[in-house]
Design a protein around this nucleic acid. Structure first.
Lengths: 208, 208
DNA sequence: GTCTATAACAAGATAGAC
DNA sequence: GTCTATCTTGTTATAGAC
């Protein structure tokens, strides 16, 4: 707390965290551009004005850096809500999709890594398996708290949640390949409409 | 055409095509397991009992081999139908999803490459952009020929087609990460039900 | 905390023998 | 048609100076 802490103790520690955050940000960018395997430590280092060896002072291995990227990115999206257990109304999720459409980089990291990580012995494969399970559960809980045990469209929350996640992921892939041709937020809202528009009353009881 | 053409001419040419097909199959496997960047020519060559240099006799570069893999795989799925313009009823598409659930390798190549190819200067990025556009168009045409200008669920074919593709892709990703937890064919049929279940008649004209 | 030097590999591709 | 040998480049990671 003294004025001459510069270069030592807490002051230095905070600076170090800043540096780490900078590196994580740069790593996310490079991974988005070239995939995990294609992202070299040297390319990341260059972006923050370090050498490859200087970077390794902050993260001992490439894998450690990837984990750090994943952990930080997690705080940005649904997974964060999922982690904290707070339910989101569908309208809020649609808002997130709208926001995502303005942040290509964020979307691209996850799309690239989600694909990458189905390969053998990928360092992020466990992460994604858990993440998907967590988000599906959270989605089902959110939908149940908004609509009860059956959505207006006729599906249960447990049926709708994985579809919701699939639509988000799948639209992102198409959107990344051709943003002009794919209006991601509008299409997501079309899907929401499908989920929430009341079905016609048929012979089955329950409409009265 | 003579009997002693063995080792020359047509006989040899056919053998060479067989060898190429073998290599393409092996390449698809290795790409599924390790991604495009992680797939070394040596690993592919080993699977067909060749050296890396022997393999390069058939495909001059790694990129040429990737293109060949993509071209051949295309003949296996929807893109083939899309290419030939023939419409598929939704039930048939659901059948394809069911079939896919028995062929992990086929699914995995596309999922890995679709993610991989959103990165910069990826040799397959043009391929996927075109493929998605083609499949969306074909999907819309198929849906229109089965249901007309508005599906029972209320969406137009142009709205439903990209969602259909997104659900297929997105479910594949979740299924690859955790096949036990994700019943891909059943979930796809849930989505089909959403698309095709009649909506409740509201105040809007058109129901009479 | 960041650097230079370097170890230790692994990659794709070419040249040329057989 | 397939091999051995080799070039060139790029990778992660370590050792140790400053």
């Amino acid at each position: 707390m003294t004025a001459n802490d510069r270069g030592r103790g807490l002051g230095r520690a905070i600076r170090s965290e800043d540096r780490k955050a900078e590196i994580i940000q740069a790593a996310a960018e490079v991974i988005a551009e070239r995939g995990y395997r294609g992202a070299s430590l040297a390319a990341v280092a260059e972006r923050v004005g370090l050498t490859q060896q200087g970077l390794l002072h902050y993260f001992p291995t490439k894998e450690a850096l990837l984990i750090a990227v994943l952990d930080v990115r997690d705080q940005w999206d649904m997974a964060s809500a999922a982690l904290h257990g707070s339910a989101w109304p569908l309208e809020m999720i649609a808002g997130l999709v709208e926001y995502n459409a303005t942040r290509r980089g964020v979307v691209q990291v996850f799309t690239v890594l989600a694909g990458d990580s189905v390969t053998e012995d990928h360092p992020a494969s466990g992460y994604f398996k858990e993440r998907y399970a967590r988000v599906r559960e959270w989605g089902a809980r959110s939908l149940r708290s908004e609509y009860g045990d059956v959505l207006p469209g006729g599906l249960t929350p447990e049926q709708a949640a994985p579809l919701l996640v699939a639509v988000m992921d799948g639209l992102q892939t198409q959107w990344l390949h051709d943003p002009e041709a794919v209006d991601m937020p509008a299409l997501f809202r079309d899907f929401v409409a499908l989920l929430t528009a009341p079905r016609a009353a048929d012979g089955t009881p329950g409409s009265a």
